[in-house]
């Protein structure tokens, strides 16, 4: 009874939720990387991104979490799925893995992870002395309009270039304008 009661503690519940989210993220990430069926990979990525969105909620910004869903899941992943359909049916002619290559990849991945974790665990993180507590999205917008206005415009320029690039690479530029 006691253990059950201790589980109902809000903090514990939050921890369980957090663990669930992390599990979701990692499962998704694993599915995104390991299965050879590319459609499973992309669905794994979607699961992983949903998990990341949950993590963003835990980090205090539901707005960014929803943006994550809207941009990554709603736009990027769907476009990738389109690309998959356009390309050769990889999910059927599953490319064989070559052991040396997987080994190499595994080695590099593990090395990076070990390195990173070493850095993470060694560093003493110091929070800033004075911290603003304004998390509101409106402030975010105001920042975009004032301090980061150039970046805001540049983003639109970058995306414009991306669209133009996509159109040009897809071979439309060679067509005569109709």
């Amino acid at each position: 009874m006691n253990s059950v009661q201790s589980l109902i503690q809000p903090q514990v519940l939050a921890q369980i939720g957090f663990a669930g989210i992390v599990a979701l993220t990692l499962t998704g990430a694993l599915i995104a990387v390991f299965p050879r069926n590319i459609l499973y990979n992309i669905l794994g990525l979607i699961v992983c991104l949903t998990g990341v969105a949950g993590i963003f909620v835990y980090l205090g910004s539901p707005f960014i979490a929803l943006m994550e869903l809207l941009i990554y899941v709603g736009a990027i992943c769907i476009s990738i799925i389109f690309a998959i359909m356009l390309s050769r049916p990889l999910h059927l002619s599953l490319p064989k893995r070559r052991l040396p290559k997987v080994g190499l990849a595994l080695g590099v991945g593990a090395a990076v992870f070990i390195m990173l974790s070493a850095i993470i665990s060694r560093t003493e993180w110091q929070p800033a002395a004075t911290r603003s507590s304004d998390w509101s999205v409106a402030t975010l917008g105001a920042y975009l309009l004032t301090r980061y206005d150039l970046v805001f415009e540049v983003i639109s320029l970058v995306l414009l270039v991306a669209i133009l690039g996509a159109i040009i690479i897809s071979g439309y530029a060679r067509r005569s304008p109709s």
Binding site: I46, P62, F63, L66, M67, L69, L70, V73, G74, C77, I78, I81, S136, V137
Partner: peptide, 19 residues
Amino acid sequence: NVGVLLIFAFSTFNVLAVL
């Protein structure tokens, strides 16, 4: 306070399920 976005964000999954 992100109500509107929530609906649109989750409607994406609908599309995905259809696909």
